[in-house]
Design a protein around this nucleic acid. Structure first.
Ligand SMILES: NC(=O)c1ccc[n+]([C@@H]2O[C@H](COP(=O)([O-])OP(=O)(O)OC[C@H]3O[C@@H](n4cnc5c(N)ncnc54)[C@H](O)[C@@H]3O)[C@@H](O)[C@H]2O)c1
Ligand SMILES: NC(=O)c1ccc[n+]([C@@H]2O[C@H](COP(=O)([O-])OP(=O)(O)OC[C@H]3O[C@@H](n4cnc5c(N)ncnc54)[C@H](O)[C@@H]3O)[C@@H](O)[C@H]2O)c1
Lengths: 228, 228
DNA sequence: GCGACTTTGTGTACGCGTTCACAAACATCT
DNA sequence: AGATGTTTGTGAACGCGTACACAAAGTCGC
């Protein structure tokens, strides 16, 4: 009984990773009252090439009109549905330090298909405190809270050391999606998705390219470079 | 016997993106007093396959010893040099809200080739306050501060709306590496690198896969799948 | 010194994603 | 209705990154 074409065929990972950008661009257009948009315009808003955008959207189906473009509202709705944001996903944040605090206060989430339903920490000073309108719970109650509140996505914002064990505990009680901010690789069984966000890595990649730009040394003024 | 060619040939982007992971794994090994490591072991620590690791390292040169493995200290040093982390890169953080605050307090950075030399915000309440041992400056002084302190990397942690303009101002005074936390695409001239970190995008990607896992309907995770 | 064993570095094949370029499809105007 | 113009959706070619498999190169034991 699949009413929707949600199970049409596999959507490439690279495409899935860009759908959120398209969705955000579409939301901006909708806010400005724009009803229709061409692939050229939408691609520019999202920072990609139009051919790539059209190829991506073609994986969702034919939602455009030749000679006109895409209906903003309709396309936004389709992407929302495809990404599974029609309902709210219950999210738990483990580790309410600097980063966890920022994440908990990130209201943008609540308007985009997610709801933070649990904040957990080990620190007795934090447990019981109210942060972003939610009481911090004890990490000792992780299993009970995750089950009770139907947590679908776990966010790990603790130091690296306890991350693997916390991840194991989440997986053991049914969490199959984990977002990891700790600077370490997590190993999970088949069927569990882990995505990692690592500020240090991003900066180091920038540093690599920056070094290539100014190979000589500490000079700040850009010198002419030999471009082959 | 190959010389010491830092500018040997182009290192693939995909490889560069993994070098930080290898470096972190090597640091852990070094802390545990391990002197030598095989590609199999190091790959496991970093969460990749050994063939991929060896291919990646081969782009840096031949730093392994057949039949033995790689010298931990030596390889860490080589990667550090290749990434340009031998010196400290001056970093400016624009926007000292929840996220900017967390970033400023992220001490891990200072031990890894970066130094936060400026915190800038627009909010008069924040300007003048000391956060993570640094006085918050006014974003009005962005140009002066960036030049005076030799900022090489700019981190944008403001809302999306002012992000493009702030980026333009950074680029105008010589910043050629930008890390963007605002949920929007930044357009920059040739020669400037922008990397984006987007929590919402990551969660939405997880939601997509999560939806595919539980296609049936609105059932919460059935109460516990017990493995005695 | 020599054979057995270990591990690297890489030739090669393959699959995925991107890009180009264009015919098909639709709207609009006369 | 037909001509004209615009934009989508996609076949096809290309390039990059990954995975396999193994010869080369080293160590270790005797
Ligand atoms: N601060 C940043 O900007 C930033 C950026 C990227 C990544 N990170 C990473 O995110 C993680 C958190 O960073 P942070 O700055 O918030 O650190 P933090 O020290 O401020 O917060 C860590 C929190 O985790 C809690 N914690 C520790 N062990 C725990 C356990 N076993 N169970 C539950 N909670 C536990 C601590 O009580 C603390 O509240 C670190 O791994 C860090 O490397 C931080
Ligand atoms: N909080 C999170 O966990 C999180 C996660 C991912 C992305 N983000 C993004 O990071 C950005 C910041 O998030 P936040 O939670 O820290 O928001 P915030 O509102 O707490 O902080 C924003 C800060 O930027 C400052 N600011 C606004 N306009 C400015 C300008 N023109 N120049 C200088 N400073 C200016 C504000 O004064 C404020 O201090 C947002 O774009 C948000 O979408 C936040």
């Amino acid at each position: 009984m699949i009413a929707d074409p949600a199970a049409r065929q596999e959507i490439p990972d690279a495409t899935v990773a860009r759908l959120p950008q398209y969705l955000r661009a579409l939301s901006d257009l909708a806010d400005r009252g724009i009803l229709s948009v061409s692939s050229e315009e939408l691609a520019a808003s999202a920072g990609v090439r139009s051919a790539k955008l059209r190829r991506d959207l073609s994986h969702l189906g034919s939602y455009g009109v030749r000679g006109v473009g895409y209906g903003v509202e309709m396309l936004a709705h389709e992407i929302t549905r495809e990404l599974g944001l029609a309902r709210d996903w219950p999210v738990a944040i483990i580790g309410v330090g600097h980063l966890g605090h920022a994440l908990a206060s990130y209201v943008d989430l609540t308007t985009q298909g997610f709801q933070v339903v649990a904040l957990l920490d080990r620190d007795c000073e934090l447990i019981g405190q109210v942060i972003a309108g939610m009481v911090v719970g004890s990490v000792d109650d992780l299993e009970r809270i995750v089950i009770e509140r139907g947590v679908a996505i776990g966010v790990i914002a603790t130091p690296a050391q306890p991350a693997q064990k916390l991840c194991d505990r989440l997986v053991a009680v049914g969490v199959r999606s984990v977002l990891n901010f700790a600077p370490c690789a997590l190993s999970v069984p088949e069927g569990v998705d882990v995505r990692k966000v690592d500020l240090s890595t991003e900066l180091q990649i920038l540093a690599f390219h920056q070094q290539r730009k100014s190979p000589a040394g500490h000079r700040r003024t850009p010198l002419l470079e030999v471009a082959p």
